[in-house]
Amino acid sequence: MAKPASQHAGGHHDHEHGHHDLESLKTLGFWIFLMTDVIIFGCLFAVYVVLRNNTAGGPTAEELFKMPGVIAETFILLTSSFTSGLAVLMMHAGKKKALIGWLAVTAILGAAFITLEVTEFIDMVHEGATISTSGFLSGFFTLVGTHGLHVSIGLVWMVGLMIQLSKRGITPVTKRKVEVLSLYWHFLDVVWIFVLTVVYLMGVM
């Protein structure tokens, strides 16, 4: 079982080793955090499913959703998940520049996704479909918006991490950070697949 340095009462000589253990501890914590996030999304999905027919005379899913944009979003996000995977591969190969480069590509794709989503939301609001129109739209905006918020937070995180990487290079700490971020990014990708299926595809079907 992995033990953090504080457990070894370790001296300076195994400082690096100790850090490595502390980092694995943090990765585990992040996994558990993601599990709680799964529950949060699970609740939001459940709420959406309960409310999705309560359109209260407002626009319905078929009237509202424009699939080309959604498919573009999906494609962009899936690609960004792939590029974040490439970033991790570069990190393991010790290629700092390539790592930062792929992270940058990932961030740009993520930003593009958010831009598309925000545009989609704005269009809806212009059509008179706001969060306060009906139970269905409350559920929709909250579920999709929460996912978008997660992606946005991920973007800020990614930029911060790129700065840290360029200053400090690939160390056990930055390594763990990249791994955790990539985990987060893949997680958001999976959530998006569910959003695509439950919200958009089931909505227009």
Binding site: V50, N53, N54, T55, A56, G57, S134, G135, F136
Partner: peptide, 11 residues
């Protein structure tokens, strides 16, 4: 009174 609050379906 009952129908006043029944909106959409499945409520």
């Amino acid at each position: 009174i009952v129908n006043k609050y029944v909106v959409g379906e499945g409520h």
